[in-house]
Design a protein around this nucleic acid. Structure first.
Length: 201
DNA sequence: TACTCGATCGGA
DNA sequence: CCGATCGAGTAA
């Protein structure tokens, strides 16, 4: 199976990879990657990322960074590759990957995984809490990391198609920022879509 | 220190 | 539709 460069070999994505100032592109690029969790008992659970949102700079009034540097947002100003985990509505832990160069506050909210839909549900499902806030995304550093398992999302890849929509729950940010289509969802291909199918079968 | 309000979810 | 539940941010 496969040669020396066989596809499907999981590659752990290094923190460095998230340090370019391309927040929206980073969000889009996370679709199809795998979020991997090492549980305390050593078991490893990996799920494909299917839904993300980009939050980009202080100018983005939907972002926590709209208030500038504060104790909470400090981690967003770090260079890409750290986890930003915060409590929402006093109930749900939200998992974000900090992206961009140092000094530019940006993050990608991970909103959905294959089989675990919803930002609050996925953190609960993977045992992720605020104790990971500020930790490095990496197997050794935090037991929570991103892997590229070779999934490609080009047309006819058969995996799915990417849909861009406005972000969820950010109407408070005003129309300019609420309407930006910075939410990306990986929709599975429908039967008969994305590949030729014999009619009438 | 007081007050407001959320990057949500599950149950009426 | 509504309540849960709590910490960050703001005003004072």
């Amino acid at each position: 199976m496969g040669g020396p460069e066989s596809k499907g070999v999981a590659e752990i994505i290094k923190a460095k990879a998230w340090q370019q100032k391309r927040t929206v592109a980073h969000a889009r690029a996370l679709l199809g990657k795998f979020l991997v969790r090492r549980w305390p008992d050593g078991r490893v659970e990996a799920r494909m990322i299917t839904e993300v949102e980009a939050y980009d700079g202080e100018r983005d009034l939907a972002s926590h960074a709209r208030a500038g540097r504060t104790r909470r947002t400090e981690i967003m100003y770090a260079a890409g590759g750290y986890w930003y985990v915060y409590l929402c509505y006093g109930v749900h832990e939200m998992l974000n990957l900090v992206v961009g160069p140092e000094g530019w506050p940006a993050a990608v909210l991970i909103r959905g995984l294959e089989g675990l839909s919803g930002p609050g549900r996925l953190t609960k499902g993977l045992g992720i809490g605020r104790e990971l806030n500020g930790a490095t995304a990496g197997e050794e550093a935090s037991g929570l990391w991103i892997e590229d398992r070779g999934v490609r999302l080009e047309a006819r890849s058969g995996i799915g198609r990417v849909v861009a929509t406005p972000r969820v729950g950010v109407d408070f940010a005003g129309p300019l920022w609420a309407e930006k289509r910075w939410r990306f969802v990986l929709k599975p291909v429908e039967r008969g879509e994305g590949a030729h199918k014999k009619p009438g079968s």
